[in-house]
Amino acid sequence: MEWDWSAVDDFMPEFWDGVLTTLQVLALGSLISFGLGLVWAMALRARTRFITWPVALINEFIRNTPLLIQLFFFFFVLPEWDVQFSTLTTGVLAIGLHYSTYTAQVYRAGIDGVPVGQWEAATALNLPRGRTWFAVILPQAIRRVIPALGNYVISMLKDTPMLAVIGVLEMLQRARQQGAETFQFVEPITVVGVAFILIAYPASVLMRFLERRLVQQ
């Protein structure tokens, strides 16, 4: 078959709208995963098993099951419980929750990397628990895990097309719609595929650079 550049041109306005939605999902999803992941990681350090065990189980469960099914779950089940969200909100929540179980692992590794003497010094000074976390431990832990967190943002980017299944108009869904309207699938889908590589590769190079700068100091 022939590659049709005019089909690419036709798709471009839709494509840019899709990029915008994808970036929106990515930004909001990242925020949720960064915040919630931190909550998980701190809960995993709680002093009672009544907290650590359920949190660990929930994390394992979410991390070891497909995001796609989780998306369906939220999309179909939440309305059954009379919770009405837009598809975009549903998608962002699902992807943020899914990735929070990965960022939790990253934070945990960072927290474990803070020398035990820092905790002891905080105890010796009688610092309150919250102060110990936010003034002493986390500032040291987070700096070193920034590149790892960045890598998960890139992973998340590559999972955003899944939101198409619940109708979020990100890049892939725009390509599908364009294909359905014009019967030209090849160009839109190829454009989207190339776009992912063009965004993800430089981003991953940046993370590798950051890793060298921040972690190995």
């Binding site: 020398p115 820092q118 000074l125 610092l127 003034a135 500032p139 040291q140």
Partner: peptide
């Protein structure tokens, strides 16, 4: 009532000297 000095110092590396000294008096 108790204070401790450690073998490995255990100063908070993310805080300047002054804040190492004021952190606990202020917050405790």
């Amino acid at each position: 009532n108790i204070g401790m000095v450690f073998q490995q110092f255990n100063l908070f590396p993310n805080m300047k000297v002054l804040r190492n000294l004021t952190e606990a008096p202020v917050h405790v």
